[in-house]
Simulated assay, not measured.
Amino acid sequence: MELDLRQAIVQRVQGKENDELIDIIEGSIGAEEMALPGLGVLFEIIWKNSTEAARKKMVTVLHKQLPSGQA
């Protein structure tokens, strides 16, 4: 049975307690680029299951943290 990347990542985190999920996320942030697809899958799950207000807040936080691009 072949698993795609999304399924493999979801299986890795299924059944984890909140503290374990925090450890996985924090351990992936700033790690090698190999961790980025995993964070993307987790973000996709969060995004799909967030309210419109929560999505707007996430985008606002992201926007504030991105460089302005102005020199």
Rank of each mutant, 00 (worst) to 15 (best):
Lys56Ser: 10
Ser28Leu: 04
Leu36Arg: 15
Met58Tyr: 12
Glu52Pro: 12
Val13Asn: 03
Leu21Trp: 14
Gln7Ala: 10
Ile9Trp: 08
Gln7Arg: 15
Ile25Val: 15
Pro67Trp: 04
Gln65Trp: 09
Leu42Ile: 13
Leu42Trp: 07
Arg55Asn: 07
Ala35Cys: 09
Ile24Ser: 02
Ile25Ala: 13
Gly30Tyr: 05
Asn49Thr: 08
Gln7Met: 01
Pro67Leu: 05
Glu26Asn: 14
Gly30Pro: 08
Ala8Asp: 05
Ala31Met: 01
Gln14Ala: 09
Ile24Tyr: 14
Arg6Asp: 03
Ala53Arg: 13
Met58Glu: 02
Ala8Ser: 10
Leu39Glu: 07
Ser68Asp: 12
Asp23Cys: 03
Ile24Met: 13
Ala54Ile: 04
Leu42Lys: 10
Pro67Met: 03
Ala54Pro: 08
Thr51Gln: 03
Ala8Tyr: 03
Ser28Asn: 11
Trp47Glu: 06
Ala35Val: 04
Gln14Glu: 11
Ile45Leu: 13
Gln14Lys: 13
Gly27Ala: 04
Lys57Gly: 00
Gln7Phe: 01
Ala54Ser: 14
Ser68Phe: 03
Glu26Tyr: 11
Ile9Glu: 07
Ile29Cys: 09
Glu44Arg: 13
Val41Glu: 12
Ser50Asn: 04
Gln11Asn: 14
Lys56Arg: 11
Gly30Asn: 02
Leu66Ser: 07
Ala35Pro: 09
Gly27Phe: 03
Ile46Glu: 01
Val61Ala: 08
Met34Tyr: 09
Gly27His: 06
Asn49Phe: 00
Gln11Arg: 14
Trp47Gln: 10
Lys16Ala: 04
Asn49Met: 00
Leu62Trp: 11
Ile29Met: 08
Glu26Met: 13
Val61Tyr: 09
Thr51Lys: 09
Thr60Arg: 12
Asn18Trp: 10
Lys16Leu: 14
Leu66Gln: 13
Asn18Asp: 11
Leu42Glu: 06
Leu36Ala: 14
Gly15Glu: 06
Asp19Ala: 15
Ser28Cys: 06
Gly38Gln: 12
Glu20Arg: 12
Gly30Met: 00
Thr60Asp: 12
Glu52Thr: 11
Lys64Glu: 13
Val13Asp: 02
Val13Met: 03
Ile45Thr: 01
Ser68Cys: 02
Gln7Glu: 14
Met34Phe: 06
Lys48Ala: 07
Glu20Asn: 12
Val41Ala: 02
Met58Trp: 05
Ile9Pro: 05
Leu5Lys: 12
Trp47Ala: 03
Ser28Thr: 02
Glu17Tyr: 10
Leu5Thr: 09
Ala8Trp: 09
Ile9Ser: 00
Ile22Trp: 13
Gln14Asn: 08
Asp23Glu: 15
Ile46His: 01
Asp23Leu: 12
Ile46Asp: 00
Gly27Leu: 00
Leu62Pro: 08
Ile22Arg: 15
Lys57Phe: 00
Asn18Thr: 13
Val41Ile: 15
Asp19Lys: 15
Ala54Asp: 13
Val10Ile: 14
Lys64Tyr: 10
Pro37Met: 05
Glu44Trp: 03
Leu5Pro: 04
Arg55Gln: 14
Val59Ile: 12
Pro37Leu: 03
Lys57Trp: 01
Thr60Leu: 04
Asp23Met: 11
Gly15Val: 02
Glu44Thr: 10
Arg6Asn: 06
Gln11Thr: 06
Trp47Leu: 02
Val41Asn: 04
Gly38Tyr: 07
Leu42Thr: 04
Thr51Val: 03
Val13Leu: 05
